[in-house]
Amino acid sequence: MTLSTEFVAGVIAGGILGWIVDHVFGTKPWGLIVLLLLGCVAGFYNVMRASGFAGSRPGRRDKADP
């Protein structure tokens, strides 16, 4: 449930920001299209980060780890 919420939040945020950009600058529909795509990318990144898939690199360790 959390992973789907992460993705949907990115898409909704991109859509809202795209609509605002189109409304303010009169660039219909390009702002909405571009920011929806960026919202999808951000949603995928958030899902990967939350699931641990895009975590730290295998060869990298913190100094605190022995």
Rank of each mutant, 00 (worst) to 15 (best):
V8Q: 02
L36K: 01
S51A: 12
G14T: 06
K63C: 11
V47K: 02
G18D: 01
G31E: 05
G26S: 05
R57F: 13
G52R: 11
F53P: 00
I20F: 08
I12Q: 02
L38S: 11
L17D: 00
P58A: 03
G14H: 03
G10H: 10
F44D: 04
C40F: 10
M1D: 08
V8R: 08
W30L: 13
D62I: 06
L32M: 12
G15S: 07
M48P: 01
G26C: 03
F44G: 00
P66R: 10
D22S: 05
L38I: 14
L37C: 13
G55V: 01
I33P: 04
R49F: 15
G26D: 04
A54D: 08
I20V: 14
F53S: 06
L17T: 10
I16W: 09
G59P: 03
L17G: 02
G26P: 02
D22K: 05
R49Q: 13
F53V: 12
I16T: 07
C40K: 05
V11N: 00
R49I: 12
G31A: 03
L37Y: 03
R49T: 14
G55S: 01
V41Q: 10
V47T: 01
P58I: 05
L36Y: 01
I20M: 12
R60M: 11
I12W: 10
L3H: 03
R60G: 00
A9K: 13
F7Y: 11
T27Y: 09
R57E: 15
K63F: 13
N46R: 13
V34Y: 08
R57K: 12
G10E: 04
P58D: 05
W30I: 05
V41C: 03
T27W: 15
Y45G: 01
A64P: 00
A64C: 10
G55E: 02
N46T: 05
L17W: 13
G18A: 05
G31Q: 00
T5L: 15
L38Y: 13
L32C: 06
R60V: 14
R61D: 11
W30Y: 14
E6Q: 11
I16Y: 08
M1R: 08
G10Y: 09
L35D: 00
D62N: 12
R60N: 03
K28N: 12
G55I: 09
H23Q: 09
P66T: 07
A54M: 15
C40G: 14
F7G: 02
T2C: 06
P29M: 08
V47Q: 00
G14S: 07
Y45R: 14
V47I: 07
G18L: 01
N46I: 02
G52W: 00
L37K: 00
A50F: 09
L17E: 02
T2H: 11
T5P: 05
I12D: 02
G26A: 00
G18M: 02
R49N: 13
A13F: 15
F25R: 08
V24N: 04
P29I: 07
M1Q: 12
W19V: 14
P29T: 01
I33G: 01
D62G: 06
S4N: 03
L35E: 05
R57I: 15
P29R: 01
G43H: 01
W30A: 09
G43W: 08
I33D: 02
V11R: 04
I20A: 06
A9D: 05
I16N: 10
F25N: 07
P58E: 10
S56F: 13
V34M: 14
H23V: 09
A64Q: 09
L17I: 15
A64D: 13
W30E: 04
R60F: 14
M1W: 09
S51E: 09
G52K: 07
